[in-house]
Design a protein around this nucleic acid. Structure first.
Lengths: 274, 274
DNA sequence: CTAATAGTGTCTATTAGACAGTATGTT
DNA sequence: AACATACTGTCTAATAGACACTATTAG
């Protein structure tokens, strides 16, 4: 027992305790627009995720989320910002902590604790600034009572994984996720992708989070498509417009050239500002 | 560059990398019932939090959340379970990960990353099984636009802290919390308490999470009181009964002796079961 | 009888869902 | 002209908020 804190700290040896490595993984989500064959139709929208091809062990040649070690003198929240900057050359991106994973055997090298983050971006902002081993994958997400089935596609390669869901307890909607099938993704990254998509789907209905994925000007049709991708279902126009009416403001710009009535361009308006 | 993963792992030295200590802190929440002077009145309900008095440095003689180091071979989710068992002698408690804190200077001893968890219990289950330096504090929680003001009271001692809120971004309801006043709580635990209370308040309206804090049999009046404590506002009886109608089932037991009409005892019924 | 909670009926206001209709550009 | 989306009007169904009322006990 020590008399003062100073004395205590002097005698304290951090190496007497178990020591871990800490990493962060970032789920960078966006919504893409594919080119459409029919000039009149709106381009179909997909969720998209940024993945990086691993060129070294462990999980050599597999894909993974951008990530890396947290530095000993670095705030844990700064690590994903740094990695995001390295990988996409962007800063001031929406970033949210998702979950901290710490199974003893999640990494073959050593004991690692990994805190995952979710970032949302407007894809148009960065297609040209990507680091060379990074690539956007379109997401196809299918969920039923017991499993989640995800297919990722970047035009050249297809990644597929399946996750089993079991309810953790009767009182909430929390699930224990277990990876049932996964051939091309490193670590427990299927879990991170899944939980991020679920988080976003929940948050879209009670926040304005979606506007972090939108460009400054957008049509209500485009915005509705993004909602539909995230919620995984079609929405009725009048209902949708009622809901977002006080979140956006009409500008005097229009978007035309689509073989149909031109669409007014809107901009995000923060309701709390008033 | 290595030829095989085996070869790579053989040459890998974990000590070449920055190493951290990991702790978990557990916010154990419950709702207490104070004895009421008037025999007729219902006892007033309070939020309550379990705190532990520190008997060693750092933060000697201050109060803190139950917590401790994660062991090198222990799943991070098992650490809070172990600590909960040590502290309250209970297992199979509702447990949920809250947030991972990792400011470089959050602990004077060394670099520590801390993952916080929230546990919910029915207080009646464990008042006698507490470890000797632990104590329940009633919570008085006051929130306005810019600050959160919390007072904790265990009958002998009063702890008070104030937290400043600044919106992180316009698109969501996320706040950056900053401790403005805090004299008796160790570490960043005011932040953990605050974020847990916010989390619970959000979840109560779209899950059945509240039943983790209830005994097996309860009256609707008691349940309503718990809702009111967590939501921080009064509810109207008919509206409340409509909302919980399909979450509970009436038993043939009644609670009487309160100087007024006896109350039927209900039990949690999981709607998904059917 | 009284104070206090238990419990219900019903009216109204608000919100969500559905469908039908009109508007207007490009080829 | 025809296709495809843009945008609006309105009816209906479901949900939430408010208030008033009745019921029942211990003391």
């Amino acid at each position: 027992m020590y008399k003062t804190e100073e004395e205590f700290l002097k005698a304290y040896n951090p190496n007497d305790y178990d020591r871990f490595s800490i990493t962060t993984d970032i789920l960078i989500l966006s919504v893409s627009s594919e080119e459409e064959s029919n000039y009149r139709k709106l381009s179909k929208k997909y969720y998209s995720v940024l993945l990086v091809k691993r060129d070294d062990y462990p999980f050599k040649d597999k894909w993974c989320l951008p990530g890396g070690f947290v530095r000993i003198d670095e705030d844990i929240e700064d690590a994903p910002k740094r990695i995001l900057k390295d990988e996409t050359n962007l800063k001031d991106i929406y970033l949210e902590q998702l979950y901290t994973y710490g199974e003893p055997n999640r990494d073959p090298r050593m004991r690692i604790i990994s805190t995952s983050y979710m970032a949302l971006v407007d894809k148009a902002r960065l297609n040209d600034k990507l680091s060379p081993n990074a690539s956007w994958f379109n997401v196809n997400y299918l969920e039923d009572d017991k499993t989640i089935d995800v297919t990722l596609d970047n035009g050249e390669e297809t990644i597929h994984f399946t996750i089993g869901k079991t309810l953790k307890e009767l009182t909430t909607d929390r699930y224990k996720f277990k990876v049932l099938k996964n051939d091309k993704l490193a670590f427990d990254h299927p879990l991170v992708i899944t939980s991020g998509i679920c988080r976003l789907r929940n948050k879209i209905s009670y926040t304005d989070i979606v506007f972090n994925m939108m460009p400054e000007y957008f049509t209500l049709g485009e915005l509705q498509q993004v909602y539909e991708v995230i919620l995984g279902k079609k929405l009725l126009d009048p209902a949708f417009r009622r809901i977002i009416a006080d979140k956006v403001e009409k500008t005097n710009k229009v978007k035309q050239g689509g073989g149909h009535r031109p669409s007014a361009l809107f901009r995000y308006k923060n309701a709390k500002k008033n």
